[in-house]
Design a protein around this nucleic acid. Structure first.
Lengths: 109, 109
DNA sequence: GATGATTGTTCGAAAGTCCCGAACGATCGA
DNA sequence: TCGATCGTTCGGGACTTTCGAACAATCATC
């Protein structure tokens, strides 16, 4: 499973991580990958065009929020939980906890 | 001191707040307004053009992060700390704590 | 009041970013 | 080999960001 490029732990910037999380679709994607570690992109199952989804995953990956690896046709995705809590202790926990309360307007099916 | 328009507490969205905080300049502005409640815009003293600064303050205000009020020629600014911790308990505390550790590349003087 | 200095907004142009459909490439199963 | 599936790339249109120049509002002083 070839991994896709991602920033090293020390390079993660708070502003980039907050920016990546500052979008309703991406917040929802993060919630789902927390619930389903190793999920594939299309498991997200949101009412968002494919190419837009690719872009959202890329932003999350380049900010260091998620890790992606090629697995056959698919991309498997994990939250970089350990690295994030090393660099930004408490941040993800708070955001995920608060994210649970928010509506998920883009959910579909 | 006429207040400038701002969203009501119940209307604050997590994504908008995170988006507003997801910029190095705005993170720095928030740090400074925490350190100096009631500061005026130009007290920020960053190496950023005036019109750009206006825009950053506007984004913070429209996301509900700060409150602004006209005071003579100036705009006084406060963090909406109580309202933010009502809607998003823990969020600001974490972000501000982490923000302290980050470099402040845009500081000047 | 006039004048000048100070504070911040508005405007417009240039550059950049985001969204999304269409076409494509890679992989898998039959 | 064929068709289906998964995701990327490309290109355009729309939107956003940045920033200088001009402007509006206020204040302090004469």
């Amino acid at each position: 499973m070839r991994p896709l490029p991602e920033p090293a732990t020390e390079q993660l910037s708070l502003a980039s991580v907050l920016y990546a999380l500052g979008d309703p679709v991406r917040l929802e994607l993060v919630s789902r990958v927390v619930a389903s570690p190793g999920m594939i992109c299309s498991d997200a199952d949101l009412d968002v065009p494919k190419s837009t989804l690719t872009n959202h995953w890329r932003i999350l990956r380049e900010a260091g929020v998620v890790r992606m690896a090629v697995d056959g046709r698919c991309r498997r995705i994990w939250l970089r939980a350990d690295e994030l809590s090393t660099q930004f202790p408490g941040l993800l926990d708070v955001v995920l906890r608060l994210g649970e309360n928010e509506s998920t307007p883009t959910a579909v099916h």
